[in-house]
Design a binder for these strands. Structure first.
Length: 421
DNA sequence: TCTGGGGTCCTAGGACCC
DNA sequence: TCTGGGGTCCTAGGACCC
């Protein structure tokens, strides 16, 4: 059996750890730049606040004191996530971290007398008491069914214990599928919903009763996989240890439109710096670099979305090499007089650094470059992240809008929580 | 006035090879 | 005159997820 552990309203729950007075009150968390809503407490959902709603639509509610807003505090959420995951890790033979607030646990091959339900109920307690984060757990023979089970675990109408189990036998799976709307299924997005509705498929039960051939023809092999998983047949693998990301990217919507090349170039350099940090942390090199800039997509006048790609002859992880290339790419698509609202970079074709091949006629001294990068890494880890940065990166070129930021309680000494006695 | 960011996987079509 | 076909790799774009 597989278990899916899901933290309830994760970002909101993180904020509540340090603001227990907000328990049972409407709370939302905003995206970067305070753009739109990315997490809601149950009370906020009950007020009718939808996901991804732009900030200005709820601003007045917060001013009237109806709902409490937070800017995202990603440092804090990442740290809390690591703590939760480390408890989960010890609770199962294998774990796959699926996102910042979700993980699959693999309980296949447990002895027949193992009481999984009791074990998971106590896990819910442990995480709540140890970290202060409420979690829900769904258990089923496939990952897709485990996702459905976790949704039920969250709802008190189905579960009072926050653990919901779907057994492997056919009839009990069938009972679950009958009333469940197909739109609730992991892997069925907007496009597929439209297609299925056109074919009179409303529930999971309608869906699994179609033939495999029909599903494959209409929805491709991903659709067929979902179909098999819903019938209780494992079609999506459990991925044990993750071997690092396939792709690393960084992008931002700017708080206002940018016309100036140097400011644009300095934010691109910022994106590169952040990607390189992640790249080096997983000991990879980048083979393909994409730089893109876009105008405001909510304005109907000129639309200008451009991207440029650079393929490295020798994969690189050196900021000193990548930033000038990115700047050149930017220069080739930049137009005077256009206001850019968003920009970003994508690193793909990542490779293992130790596997880098020496290339004849390589114009760069790789050993020297590595030495320099290592010095930079060491200085930055010793004295703080922005001690030494590339000149192009600049300082504070674009302050991010975060008007309702909570403190970095767990990752920054100056923000550590104070206790009044 | 104000509208997120970071990912994965799959597919179709072009280039190229023998 | 007659003008293949299969395999692989790459890339852009779509769909989906949290």
């Amino acid at each position: 059996m597989f278990a899916l552990v899901d933290c309830d309203n994760f970002f909101v729950s993180c904020e509540r750890i340090f603001r227990p007075d907000l328990q049972n009150k409407p709370v939302v968390v905003l995206s970067g730049n305070d753009g739109c809503i990315i997490a809601r407490s149950n009370e906020a959902k009950a007020l009718g606040i939808a996901m991804a709603v732009p900030y200005f639509k709820v601003k007045s509610m917060s001013e009237r004191g109806k709902v409490t807003l937070f800017s995202s505090n990603i440092m804090l959420y990442g740290d809390i996530s690591r703590r939760v995951m480390s408890i989960l890790q010890d609770a199962a033979p294998a774990m796959e971290v699926y996102s910042i607030d979700e993980a699959f646990l693999d309980f296949r091959g447990m002895p027949a007398d193992f009481d999984l339900e009791a074990h998971l109920k106590s896990l819910v307690e442990t995480v709540q008491r140890g970290i202060g984060i409420p979690i829900s757990i769904g258990v089923a023979p496939t990952k897709t069914l485990a996702k459905l089970a976790a949704n039920r675990a969250k709802k008190s109408t189905f579960s009072s214990s926050k653990v919901y189990i779907i057994n492997s036998n056919r009839d009990s799976i069938r009972e679950i599928l009958k009333p469940t709307p197909i739109a609730d299924v992991w892997g069925i997005g907007r496009k597929s919903q439209v297609l299925l509705r056109k074919n009179n498929i409303e529930t999971c039960y309608d869906f699994v009763n179609r033939s495999a051939g029909w599903v494959k023809q209409a929805m491709g092999i991903t659709g067929e996989r979902t179909w098999r998983e819903l019938r209780g047949e494992k079609a999506i693998d459990f991925v044990g240890e993750s071997d690092g990301r396939q792709q690393i990217s960084n992008s931002r919507t700017f708080s206002s439109e940018i016309y100036d090349f140097d400011i644009l170039a300095s934010s691109i350099a910022n994106f590169i710096t952040s990607c390189v940090t992640k790249l080096r942390a997983q000991n990879s090199t980048v083979g393909l670099l994409t730089v893109f800039i876009q105008t405001n997509r909510f304005k109907s006048n000129v639309e200008y979305n451009e991207s440029r790609v650079h393929r490295f002859n020798v994969e690189s992880d050196a900021i000193t090499e990548i930033i000038p290339i990115a700047t050149k790419l930017l220069k080739s698509m930049y137009r005077v007089g256009i206001g850019y609202k968003k920009g970003g970079v994508v690193f793909s074709s990542l490779a293992d650094k130790s596997a880098r091949q020496a290339v004849l006629f390589d114009t760069i001294d790789r050993d020297k470059q590595d030495t320099l990068m290592n010095v930079l890494d060491n200085l930055n880890s010793k004295f703080g992240n922005h001690t030494i940065i590339s000149a192009r990166k600049g300082f504070d070129a674009l302050p991010i809008k975060r008007e309702n930021l909570s403190r970095c309680y767990t990752t920054s000494w100056s923000d550590i929580i104070e206790v009044k006695c």
